[in-house]
């Protein structure tokens, strides 16, 4: 193609055929408009071809390509979804302790006509936003703010919707001094017993404890091109092979895709993205997410509190793979004083 492709940083290598055909479609559309000619047949043919190309590429996506998609520079982020799904979002900052942390946005919102409490990690879509949101890496105050607002939700029985998108919790001296570990741990304990439904969705990056810190719920879903991992593929590769360049191998070894996590019983549902990924059609991605959230929240709202808490406990209690070599169950008594 004569026309230069978009800025390289805007697409991934394996997306090149998709970008090329999309540009071709655009050219025909412009041509049709400027010359007042009918190219609808050609354009329809190209659209069909585009879908075939996408299907062929996405059928055999490697785990690493999935990670690349999750980090795509054009991928919609929390605020993109909030604009489309929760126009009434009423942001309430305030951890009541230290500072506001814009890496996690919190406040009530309307999901259709259902009142919910929204907890959303946001990375930032441009430099200014990214600086404000610290690229989505929260400090302890972010996790504490989230807990404050989740308690508020519990008090008024608002279901909680938690949108996860972070590379990880902030790894800095100040975060350590203010108790990053205990802030996350407290959320894990409290969320496991919060008396209101919680739905979590990994939008893009589920980066270890930083993601889990707002990630305990009755229902955990992932967008189709998200990943969820105990460590970044680069970090894993640096440990295993002393070479962060081996991240693609590490991504495969870590089993971090939605399909893997569904298999482990960790993820309850995978939310489909439009062909080619959420960034090719953010409206459709948002519509899919909204539809999923509504059906899950309605279902959970019909569950009694006792059942809800028992099931949530059981959900996490049974995650794990080990061999029990005893024939009988666990011992149930100990010497009492």
């Amino acid at each position: 193609m004569a026309k230069a492709l978009q800025d390289r940083s805007d697409y991934l290598d394996f997306e090149r055929p998709v970008v090329e055909i999309e540009q071709k479609i655009e050219e025909f559309e412009t041509l049709a408009k400027t010359n007042n000619m009918d190219f609808s047949e050609e354009i329809n043919r190209l659209h069909k071809r585009r879908l075939t190309i996408i299907r062929d590429i996405f059928r055999d996506l490697t785990p690493w390509q999935r990670v690349e998609l999750a980090r795509h520079p054009k991928r919609p982020q929390s605020l993109d979804y909030i604009e489309r799904i929760f126009p009434d979002f009423l942001e309430l900052a305030g951890d009541r302790a230290f500072a506001d942390d814009a890496a996690i946005l919190t406040g009530p919102a309307l999901l259709g006509d259902i009142k919910v409490m929204l907890i959303a990690q946001h990375k930032g879509r441009d430099m200014k936003e990214s600086i404000r949101c610290n690229w989505g890496s929260a400090h302890p105050e972010g996790y504490r703010k989230a807990l404050e607002k989740m308690r508020l939700a519990e008090k008024f029985r608002l279901p909680i919707v938690s949108l996860i998108d972070t590379k990880g919790a902030y790894p800095g001296i100040d975060a350590e001094e203010r108790g990053q570990a205990v802030a996350i741990a407290t959320n894990l304990r409290e969320m496991s017993a919060l008396r209101t439904p919680i739905v979590c969705v990994v939008l893009s990056e589920g980066g270890s404890g930083g993601a889990l810190g707002i990630g305990i719920g009755d229902h955990v879903a992932m967008m189709e091109n998200a990943y969820y991992s105990v460590i970044s593929p680069e970090g894993c590769a640096a440990i295993l092979w002393k070479d962060a360049g081996k991240a693609p191998e590490a991504a495969a070894a870590l089993k971090l895709t939605p399909a893997d996590l569904t298999g482990f019983g960790i993820v309850d549902a995978v939310i489909p993205e439009p062909p080619g990924g959420a960034h090719r059609d953010p409206d459709e991605a948002a519509a899919n997410l909204k539809q999923h959230l509504i059906s899950v929240v309605l279902e959970l709202s019909r569950t009694t509190e006792t059942d809800l808490l028992a099931r949530r406990y059981e959900k996490y209690r049974r995650i794990g793979f080990y061999a029990d070599l005893s024939s009988q169950g666990a011992p149930d008594s100990s010497p009492e004083s």
Partner: peptide, 10 residues
Amino acid sequence: GVISLMQMAK
């Protein structure tokens, strides 16, 4: 992997 991460939750 992420199974270990979930032990934090458990």
